[in-house]
Design a protein around this nucleic acid. Structure first.
Lengths: 231, 231, 231, 231
DNA sequence: GATGAATGAGGATTCATTCAT
DNA sequence: CATGAATGAATCCTCATTCAT
């Protein structure tokens, strides 16, 4: 098509296509990498596979990421950094009971993280943390600590308002976090955490957890078995 | 080579010690492998390291295990086999409140599994399950399903006796299992599940979980936030 | 594509500068390549570096040179072609003593070759000759043999005139050539030929060599140690 | 041969064979590496070629040398380190005229280094020095400086005894070193330093160089051309 | 013509596995 | 049985070369 070249129209549109592809490339590669790393583990995933899933060649991957390890770091950064900032603000201005707040927190967390591919990061980190101390500390800094802090703030609010009974904050926070992490890990480890036969509905699981949690944290809670003990 | 044995009688007495060691070899190798696989991941662990930690040479390892993969399978089998048989019997004859039963169950589980090296199996399975479907289904059959069943039996007992309120058994069982698994994973993934700064005491963690669980499952439980809702 | 040219007249005036640059391109690339090949070796130099130093893109380099090897060949040819023709004429009409002639020869060689980038060719050839036999024989024909011949002619002149003593021409010629080559190689191989600490002045080095050479070639030369030997 | 095993004779001899091979391995690899590195250059030589020439597989090479670069270092060390110690002692106790000393020095150098494979090191270093600064400085330290010092000591001795005329030591030393290095480089760069057609005999070349050098350094030397100048 | 994104062959290096001793 | 030297398949990464824009 020599004429089209003269007027450079095709050039323009085609160039756009290439540009767009170039800009999309890192994202596509990160998505592919996340999937495969979660699925097969970091070491067991070949860079060629990642490239192939992203629809490019091995060499292209190294055009965007210095090394396989750097790719892993980018995956973690891409899927986590900066989420907590917005989140913290959202919760600092929350109005309603603390029970509602906890309910909202867990549900919103599921919708924005747990239900997305990013949920695989947890499993990924667990497997590779010891091999990449740098990433592990980054993750600790950017995710674990802020998360724990947020939960603790909510629980403190409940205890201050009298909704929740007085408890050790650290351990209570773990009680909230544990099912979240458990759920994320289950999702990516079919049959290893929960029974394969059990078709668990995440939303229902969260609801059930909240039910028990809120009963358990409630200021006017009875204890199973205590009745008997007292007798 | 029968003749060679004739000439090697002198060695016989000396090899008594060796025989014993020889029988101990597989076990030592399995222990070393479990530790390293949990610590560094399957792929990142070199068979030579395993052999070295067990005090033998690389070649010797292959005398006992056909391949690295076979070694992994053996590690998992070794640390799981037949734990639940005895356990189930123990619990079927348990006397006392179901609250006590659940308390006992979680504590005994920690003492016999959680506190031992076997706790690393969970992490190992999570990381490698997708790469070894055969082993994953084995684990599912041998551990996950029986465990879930045992927990469900306990919960059912509590609901039947009126100690626990009526709940969906599946989701309630998950509420019991989640903190157990969370605890095991935390133990082997410093900083990835719980805050590194938080020096958690497993026994205290279990106690806290039980506290919330029993409050939460209790038949006469209040719910935080409901008071307001009703208003 | 003649039509495209019709529509691109506007560009014509602007492209005068570009045309000129376009013609200069190969030369700039050859210069950059010579520098880098000498500095880092052929294999260790990336074509991208060459292109960058010449201020063009990787792709452009391949517009002018079929391959990296072809670039090397061009570099060598470019820096050698036709130097000896003019040179030979210059020396065939030289007037003065042969000692002066040799002095002039070495100094002029330094000014026109040794002091320029072309001096790097020697090192380049030495390193890559075995990998590029074709180029090596080309170099042999174009440089080594003519050079040797020129030197031999000078020495013959000195012997004919009685200024120099009778010597084996081949080996005497080598005595003249050796320091020249040594000097060129030294220049591009800091610390490998001569002591790094020694800040050698090329001109002074040539003067010193000439001093010894002319003393050594002189018809009425004494020999160190012979006095004693004779005693 | 089952019987032979019983009496373990074959074992002994065979074991010896393997042991010997194992001990010989590094040397064989170093020889092969030296040859190939000199022949083709460091970068252009594949480790597999080196291994093949030494009669082993790729993997075996890495059993003895951490990396290709480490192999190069070992080659340099093996062929140079420690030669100068013995050499310096030998010359410090030399008896005879300094002319004889210089003659002996150059000849002995040729026999022990120049005529051996080690002579290729010079070319190797020249090509790779810039890429491996560490090796280059090592070479400078271990070879160049001691060599230069040795030569200077000899020349100083000749000047002190009145055999040689007073000259700048640095430049006189270069006059001695230049032909040595030239000769080594020529040997490994057929046609690039000296005319291919010229079948140079190293020993004769050295003799010729000494002839000119000793004439040139001699205290009672005339200078070609000066007669005319003076006229 | 010029560009630089994309390619993939090629090479260094690792490590599970074998086997002669 | 135990060893550890040897192997070579597998994998990361580089970089000369191509080609759509």
């Amino acid at each position: 098509m020599p004429l089209s070249k003269l007027f450079c129209k095709a050039k323009a549109s085609a160039s756009v296509k290439r540009e767009r592809r170039k800009e999309a490339r890192p994202g596509e590669l990160l998505d592919a990498a996340l999937e495969l790393f979660v699925e097969k583990g970091f070491a067991a995933t070949r860079v060629e596979e990642v490239a192939a899933r992203a629809g490019v060649s091995k060499g292209t991957l190294f055009l965007y990421f210095q090394s396989k390890e750097e790719l892993l770091k980018a995956v973690v950064r891409e899927n986590i950094s900066g989420r907590f900032e917005a989140w913290n603000k959202e919760f600092s201005s929350f109005e309603g009971s603390t029970g509602e707040m906890l309910t909202y927190c867990l549900n919103v967390w599921w919708d924005r993280v747990g239900a997305t591919k990013a949920s695989g990061i947890t499993k990924l980190m667990m497997s590779e943390a010891t091999n990449f101390p740098e990433i592990a500390s980054f993750y600790q800094h950017e995710v674990i600590t802020p998360g724990q802090t947020l939960i603790r703030r909510i629980l403190q609010r409940g205890m201050d308002s009298g909704e929740f009974r007085k408890m050790d904050l650290d351990y209570a926070a773990l009680a909230v976090v544990a099912p979240i992490i458990f759920l994320m890990l289950s999702k990516h480890s079919a049959g290893v955490c929960i029974d394969k036969g059990l078709a668990m509905d995440p939303k229902k699981y969260i609801a059930a957890q909240l039910d028990i949690l809120l009963h358990g944290l409630s200021a006017n809670a009875g204890v199973a078995g205590r009745a008997k003990e007292k007798t």
